[in-house]
């Protein structure tokens, strides 16, 4: 098995300068790996640092110690010490991330929000839109909404646009932060199906899910984040 992600002793502390320099340790000694085709679910109560770990793997939060090895184009890159340009390259072709909330650009139609990652990788606009449409249809976003920007959509609709945006590319690594939190049963089932398809294609997935049912369906392994609690 090839590890797509390998964390060893990764740690994160926030220093709050506006609160007199209070140190807020989040996690330390984070060590686990994710193989190709495997889905690892992070578990632990709110505030245990699950989202922070996901953000560190995406390079959104800086890592204050340890290593975050990412297999990118056949070589292992340590994200913890990577240059901004390398991180951008990794995000363009290796890691997809579905955040809890959609951060959409004003005025951009839904169909283009979803098609964007493909266009950034050189797919023609027409092809990209077609694939975006197919995915939106599968996620039950009615076609009459595709030309509208998602900012006025309901929480569940925005979440599904976000999922489509994250799932449309063939990234070998996917990070999912509560992808099913605001979805109804039918749409939850679609997302589970999409995750299963990714796994069959060899995608390494790290997910945060609070729903026990879904966790049972998708998880190959569970990593308990409380083990990485950084006692202050």
């Amino acid at each position: 098995m090839t590890a797509m992600i390998e964390l060893s002793n990764a740690e994160k502390t926030f220093t709050m300068h506006l609160q007199g320099g209070v140190e807020l340790p989040v996690v330390r000694g984070v060590s686990f790996h994710v193989d190709a085709g495997e889905c690892v679910v992070l578990s632990g109560p709110s505030g245990a640092g699950k989202s922070s770990i996901l953000k560190m793997i995406y390079g959104n939060y800086r890592c204050d110690g340890g290593r975050i090895g990412i297999r990118h184009r056949g070589a292992v890159v340590d994200l913890a010490g990577a240059e901004p340009r390398q991180v951008l390259g990794i995000r363009r072709s290796t890691i997809g991330y579905v955040s809890q909330f959609l951060r959409a650009v004003p005025r951009v139609p839904t169909i283009d929000v979803v098609a964007e990652p493909l266009i950034a990788n050189g797919v023609s606009r027409e092809d990209a839109r077609e694939r975006a449409g197919a995915l939106l249809r599968r996620l039950n976003i009615p076609e009459r909404l595709w030309r509208l920007p998602p900012s006025t959509f309901s929480g569940g609709e925005q979440q599904r646009v976000n999922i489509a945006h994250g799932f449309i590319s063939n990234y070998p690594i996917l990070l999912l932060d509560e992808p099913t939190a605001s979805l109804d049963a039918a749409n939850r089932a679609v997302v589970v199906e999409l995750i299963e398809e990714k796994k069959r294609k060899g995608v390494a997935t790290v997910a945060i899910v609070h729903d026990d049912e879904i966790r049972k369906e998708i998880a190959d392994r569970i990593v308990d984040v409380t083990a990485f609690a950084a006692a202050a």
């Binding site: 926030f14 220093t15 300068h17 506006l18 953000k55 390079g59 959104n60 939060y61 800086r62 901004p84």
Partner: peptide
């Protein structure tokens, strides 16, 4: 200095934290 989302979501310097907040 750094990636835009990194500096804005995880600002490190006191002044950057002040700007973002």
């Amino acid at each position: 200095t750094g990636l835009t989302d990194q500096v804005l979501d995880d600002p490190r310097e006191p002044y950057t934290q002040l700007l973002v907040s």
